[in-house]
Amino acid sequence: MSVTNEMIPPRPAPAVLHRPLTTAKVVGIGVLILWALLAMALVSMVIEGWDPAKFERYGPRYLNGLWTTISLVGISIVLGAVLSLPIAFARMSKNRALNAVAYAYVYVFRSTPLLAQLFLIYYGLGSFRPQLESVGLWWFFREAWYCGLFSLTLNTAAYQAEILRGAIQSVPVGQHEGAAALGISKRVAFWKIILPQALIVALRPYGNEIILMIKGSAVVAIVTVYDLMGETRYAFSRTFDYQTYLWAAIFYLTMVEALRHLWNFIERRLTRHLVR
């Protein structure tokens, strides 16, 4: 049996482990220097190649292109959201046929490239001109802008339907049962109880989808829509100035980053009640 007779005398704190240079630090500094060099090269390129005439000529065109991109993405997201509702419900329905049709739609649009879909709609449907004229739809399929909007809408509807379905199914069954126990009708329960909870779950995927659409909408430039990418290609084909692409990159990055921060803010705000 041991008895402690004296306390351990107080000792100084252990010395701080001082690591002057680790491999990670060296690599980190090296890569950061590389980034800084690249940024400086780009900035010097912009300053050296600065040409007021070009700015005056292509600046407004860029802003126009920016507006085209934003409106294209905005409209197609809204239309896609409207279209995604019935698809999501068909996907959740017990009717086998309806389910299969919705699944096929989602599968096809999610596993083929947007570029191929766009070509199919613009060039492919465009080759049925007489038939389209007789139905009176030629004005729609003649315009590259409408075709771009149409294909973006169909594409995003497939993705949004899956987001919506996942979110609705993530709401626990107890919520449905609770609503039923209170005698709330199915319709009211859906709009007032299920959907608000589902949309909080869906918020983050929706933000990602909008960002993907902003990036994906660049393909409409290939079918001669003058969106941000289209204007960039136009300016590059006229000037052969590499800066044109850098400006487009700055615009796209700003848009995406702004949206990302906005979305973080919205999410924090809407999930206040969930924070403990």
Binding site: A218, M229, R233, Y245, L246, A249, Y252, L253, V256
Partner: peptide, 12 residues
Amino acid sequence: FRGLPELLTLFI
């Protein structure tokens, strides 16, 4: 590179 459109990255 997650913020840039793939098409733009390709051109760049």
